[in-house]
Design a protein around this nucleic acid. Structure first.
Length: 606
RNA sequence: GCGCUCGUAGCUCAGUGGAUAGAGCAUCAGCUUGCGGAGCUGAGGGUCGAAGGUUCGAGUCCUUUCGAGCGCGCCA
């Protein structure tokens, strides 16, 4: 709807440019924005303010010229255009123009998020890597934020017209010391051997040990080397991660193995490429950016001979990085180099994203350097950092280090919420509820802000979670539509004559239609700045707008069949909008919700 | 020390450079002979950490500063 208005204003401005009234360089300054105050009309345009200087006229004068041009057409959708305040154009729309968008919504259906005038078939092929937990631990509630965010972003990118591959990077390098220690820990549990120093503790390690023993009952486990244990432990751990993520509603197209690049020779090839283009060498120095006050300069420090250096300082990093250690073993970043080559070179993605937690923000300069060193444009690679989640249990920060045995897993969170919100439901139903609440909770906050996750609040008081508010709106619509169908009202985009929509004149009806039509714009914005959390706000606003409408406008009225049809169309449109939004957030759209007594809580009051 | 991120109501958080800064929770007061009351209506609650700057206009952009979190390996 804004896009339509924008084009109308654009046409008017172009007309004034053609007539010589405005200079040509003002034609890109048009923006259509919301009005917070209903006195300010349906939408506002600040063109007169921003163009004032270039046109050399006072804003109100420009506003008058523009308003006159816009209102000249008898078919104009504007009921009135006021010039207010310092020079805002307050656009007041004819109700029939607003109501007419219902047809577009009903025709678009599930494609509503992608329904933009300027959308093209495909904007490119992109890769989004996220979660990528090392295969020595489970998916924690901390990783849950990255999972919820990354998955929602993937869904938004798809709706925005990209061809997206979500990908999980498996850190399965056989030379990893961490993985070796993990395998030794599993082995010691399985065989009741002495526990390795700084080994991995926790129930999940015992689970893996038990599973290995159960899976290979006839093997002589005691005689197996650590490498054997590492392969099996890792496989079981990845399977557990995959299963937990599936429960959370997250599915990856690719599970990409680090080791596969060592095996295939891609790592070696990629390093050769860097050496050939001068980005890597084994000279005996290390470069580092040194800051002296505000000045900075590159300093070369002598080093022992041996390692192969990535001269990442040439590409904006603050230090050179070791690719091959003095002993010839590849450093971790060698895998990253090959992985970049795999994505941008071999697989030819137009862009590769990596979504990382805040503890990895130091990787940004070096990974950008890797991208450039391999000869790819900087725009083809981007790291998105989400901020830390602090988990509170009983009012205190809940530690969840991977070696203290006290891990709060994502699956635990899902189960706890579900068990509390729907105590007598089936396991599957509980997991659906737990997933919906947890995802919504994670996504309510901007990925770029620190957040507190009060575990007790999310479980014990999950009844108050706004996710139920938005889902209830959907269930309520379904109930009304069912009732309408029983009364013989069956509506689709073709069956209602346009004149019927002119019956929709109530402010809450029109506000509801406008809000539903905002979805494509919201999706476009999210795809641009990755702020997918706005979709939760949007869902709440759309649900609220529906509840307002429901409160003021009775839908089914036997004595007013035409109005009833029109309002059913409104309900259907909102159902489409809500369901599409839920789909983007990865939560379900229940058609009915039955209240259930909350789980009994131990009474600790005296 | 250097770098990244954040600071908005009692709490958790929204907020396209725009008009009188919003929501949920919590607190208080109301609403139903009709489509689902998991709803609706209203009230109280704010020096947008602080100080400068940019401009018609700053919670939003820039600089400085205070506070909080995180990161700075020939680990992965």
């Amino acid at each position: 709807m804004r896009e339509t208005l924008q084009l109308l204003v654009q046409a008017a401005v172009d007309q004034l440019i053609a007539s010589g009234a405005f200079p040509a360089d003002v034609r890109n300054l048009i923006e259509i924005s919301d009005t917070k105050n209903p006195d300010h009309g349906d939408y506002a345009c600040n063109f007169a303010l921003v163009a004032s200087k270039k046109i050399g006229q006072p804003p109100r004068k420009i506003g008058e010229m523009l308003a006159e041009t816009l209102l000249a057409d008898v078919d104009s959708p504007f009921e009135a255009i006021d010039i207010a305040g310092p020079g805002f154009l307050n656009l007041r729309l004819k109700p029939a123009f607003v109501a007419g968008f219902l047809v577009d919504i009903l025709k678009a259906g599930a494609e509503l998020p992608a329904a933009r005038l300027s959308s093209s078939p495909s904007l490119g092929k992109i890769n989004v890597e996220f979660v990528s937990v090392n295969p020595n631990g489970p998916i924690t509630v901390g990783s849950g934020r990255g999972a919820a965010f990354g998955d929602a972003l993937v869904r938004v990118f798809r709706a925005a017209g990209y061809d997206v591959d979500p990908e999980y990077y498996i850190n399965d390098g056989v030379n990893s010391q961490q993985m070796r220690l993990f395998a030794e820990s599993v082995k010691s549990y399985a065989l009741s051997e002495p526990f390795p120093e700084n080994g991995y503790k926790g129930e999940y390690v015992k689970d893996v040990a038990t599973d290995v023993a159960a899976k290979f009952p006839t093997e002589d486990l005691a005689s197996k080397e650590v490498g054997w244990w590492q392969a099996r432990s890792q496989e079981l751990m990845i399977e557990r991660q995959r299963s937990d993520l599936a429960t959370f509603g997250v599915a990856f197209n690719n599970w990409f193995s680090e080791q596969s690049m060592h095996d295939s020779g891609l790592v070696t090839e990629s390093l050769e490429k860097l050496k050939a283009n001068g980005s890597a060498d084994d000279e005996c120095y290390r470069a580092e950016v040194v800051r002296d006050g505000k000045e900075e300069h590159l300093e070369q420090k002598p080093e022992e001979a041996g390692p192969l250096w990535l001269r990442s300082t040439k590409f904006g990093d603050d230090k050179d990085r070791v690719l091959l250690r003095s002993n010839g073993r590849p450093a971790y970043i060698a895998g990253d180099v090959a992985y970049m080559e795999s994505k941008l070179g071999q697989r030819k993605y137009d862009k590769a994203f990596i979504i990382l937690g805040p503890d990895h923000h130091g990787y940004i300069p070096r990974m950008n350097a890797v991208c450039k060193a391999l000869g790819y444009p900087a725009e083809k690679f981007e790291i998105i950092i989400f901020q830390i989640v602090r988990f509170l249990k009983e009012g205190k920060p809940a530690p969840m280090r991977k070696r203290d045995g006290n891990i709060y897993e994502l699956r635990d969170l899902i189960d706890e919420i579900g068990a509390n919100a729907a105590p007598s439901a089936t396991k599957e139903e509980q997991q659906r509820v737990g997933r919906d609440v947890a995802r919504f909770f994670y996504l309510m906050r901007s990925h770029d802000t620190h957040m507190d996750f009060d575990i007790d609040l999310a479980t014990k008081q999950s009844d108050e979670n706004p996710v139920f508010y938005v889902q209830y709106a959907h269930a309520r619509i379904c109930s009304v539509l069912n009732r309408a169908a029983e009364s013989g009202f069956v509506i689709n985009a073709e069956s209602v004559k346009p004149e019927v929509y002119e019956l929709l004149t109530h402010p809450r009806e029109l506000a509801l239609i406008k809000k539903t039509m905002d979805l494509p714009m919201e999706v476009a914005r999210c795809a641009k700045d990755y702020g997918v959390h706005r979709l939760t706000t949007y869902a709440v606003e759309l649900a609220r707008s529906y509840h307002h409408f429901y409160d003021a406008c009775r839908v089914i009225q036997a004595d007013q069949p035409e109005l009833t049809k029109a309002r059913i169309a409104v309900c259907q449109a909102v159902a489409i909008g809500l369901k599409a939004t839920f789909e983007l957030l990865g939560i379900s759209a229940p058609e009915r919700m039955d209240r259930e007594a909350p789980a009994p809580v131990a009474n600790t009051e005296s």
